[in-house]
Design a protein around this nucleic acid. Structure first.
Lengths: 155, 155
DNA sequence: CCGATATTGTTATGATCATAACGATATCCG
DNA sequence: CGGATATCGTTATGATCATAACAATATCGG
């Protein structure tokens, strides 16, 4: 096994500075999200579903039929992005679309029977993934984390 | 102003279930990261830099020349992804590349003079963005958040 | 020394993401 | 009623992301 590679040039302190990338929230959040996402994909990946796709299905399961745009907001996706996700799910017959009879702008999205069955199968798996991601934390720490993350997202 | 659109079909409780998407860490982390990233892009966007690009430059500033692969690990990017980021930064003359004389597999990446100057200009802005993202939290809460996020990322 | 193994970087594929510009439809307001 | 304004969905562009397969190089073990 070759050395784990630290062969590059020696560290260079250019400017005296207390700056460290590790101290930037955005960087920490990105890595934590990578971990959570990878935990999820490890398990539901065999169903060929990504985290955003699963979130979309789960939201429809909770709320029933939604317009594409509102669905996007409820899973934190831009209109252009939720469109692509819906298209892929539709191609796999997990969701169905129809036009809103009273507002011609809207496309209503809903789970198909197959989509509903899949979500019900996936929810316990997702709960296990959440538990696995949170494993390093004690119960009270988890509650604190949820509170803090929620307040960050709200701004 | 049109109604804010809740026109879709009424909520449908399908299965009695305590499941809520809001209770899944992955979803919360994704939204918090969206917020932090958007805060950053709002400020450094005028420099035409994304958050990962900035992180790459910052890491090089901290550590000096690094192999492309190691650089990728230090900013949490896969080899295929760090490659693209380096290509874009190189095209803009913010980084320069050369081959490692002793290990022909390695490509050494380093900041150019222009890249170094840009990072030094951006660091205070990034610090302000971090502060802005953390604004909803008190000082002790921020410390707790850092601790929890760090432990999540480590697994 | 030399074959087995590991690492580096590349290529290809497919899925997110954000942004801006656009037409169509709906609502508001004078 | 009718123009100004807002919302919905689409298109286009460019940047992340993760994964798998691959050639080249380096290291290890016998």
């Amino acid at each position: 096994m070759p050395r784990t590679s630290t062969k590059a040039a020696a560290p260079v302190r250019r400017l005296a500075s207390d700056y460290r990338l590790e101290d930037q929230v955005g960087f920490l959040l990105r890595r934590a999200y990578q971990r959570a996402s990878s935990n999820l994909v490890d398990r539901i990946g065999s169903y060929d579903l990504t985290a955003p796709q699963y979130a979309t299905l789960a939201r429809l399961y909770e709320r029933g039929a939604l317009s594409q745009n509102l669905l996007g907001r409820l899973v934190a996706m831009e209109p252009a992005n939720i469109r692509d996700v819906v298209l892929r799910l539709k191609k796999r017959r997990l969701v169905a679309t129809r036009r809103d009879p009273t507002d011609k702008r809207l496309i209503l999205i809903d789970l198909t029977v197959a989509g509903t069955a899949l979500v019900e199968q996936l929810i316990p798996i997702e709960l296990a993934c959440t538990a696995r991601t949170l494993a390093p934390l004690k119960a009270d720490e988890r509650r604190v984390l949820y509170d803090l993350l929620g307040r960050l997202a709200e701004g």
